[in-house]
Amino acid sequence: MATAQAEKRAERGGGAVPRSVVPRPARRTPRRAHPERWVTVLALLLISVGFVLPFVWMLSTSLKTLDRTMEMPPRFLPDPVVPQNYLTVLQNPKLNFPLLTRNTLIVAVLSVVGTTLSSAIVAYGFAKIRFRGNGTLFGVLLATMMIPFPVIMVPLFGIFRWLGEHTPVPFLGTLTPLWLPAFFGSAFNIFLLRQFFLTIPAELSEAAQVDGCSDWGIFRRIVLPLARPALAVVALFTFMGSWNDFMGPLVFVQDPSQYTLALGLQTFQSQHGGTEWNLLMAASLLVILPVIVLFFMAQKTFIQGIATTGLK
């Protein structure tokens, strides 16, 4: 059901995201309050408390002195308030926040550029060019999405180790294994972009064809500019995935100078975790903050992107 429907909708609107499925702000409640509506709001409020409490707890702990973190019973309002904890974390040589951030950003930015570009190129091939085996290969691509990272991490480790020993480029112990595969497209993103490219009317590319435009020209000048919303979704998801990734860096990165934020945070915890909860919470919040800011800046793209994945 959903495929056909969503495609029809997308065709009509010509947009990446079927507008009608995107949650719109609710209409104002009628004045005469329904009793059921109150129950709903009450339930929502109660559940929200459960969702927000860990955040509040984190923030509160991050602003406490060390001995106050163990105070019984615990208090939500820190007294005294110690914002210096954040400075301590930022300047902690064991954590080396600036370096971790730099490494994480290198991996994230390269992954975003690599995945977005290569996935768009591949998606164009699948969506707009007829060649033998197109359907079969696309089926293979879909199937690869079921293969979990843990299944291939051992041989990948071996491959990068081998490459490092047999080529002048060092692989293991550098950030390369974390972003290099991104340049070969990712199945999920290729799938997403292909579905989008299919909704771009053929007339557009046909007209360009008549004007003597090559496939590459059509891709560059027509498809890419039209696909900006879909590319934004891909870029955002990739950035978040890369920022949050833990297992990849854990397996491939060995030298602390190459640690990413996620890995650095975990190492910091395993070294001091049992004790300095205020610093640990401050560090966690610092790692979370950029992601949350990014989410608020691009909330619409996010929600629409997720809603689309479920429907196509």
Binding site: S48, F51, V52, W57
Partner: peptide
């Protein structure tokens, strides 16, 4: 509000929950 926790990097949310 409900979406926010799923944004939190797995390591960070693990640490928060240990606490």
């Amino acid at each position: 509000l409900f979406y926010l926790p799923s944004l939190v990097p797995a390591v960070a949310s693990a640490l928060v929950w240990v606490w």
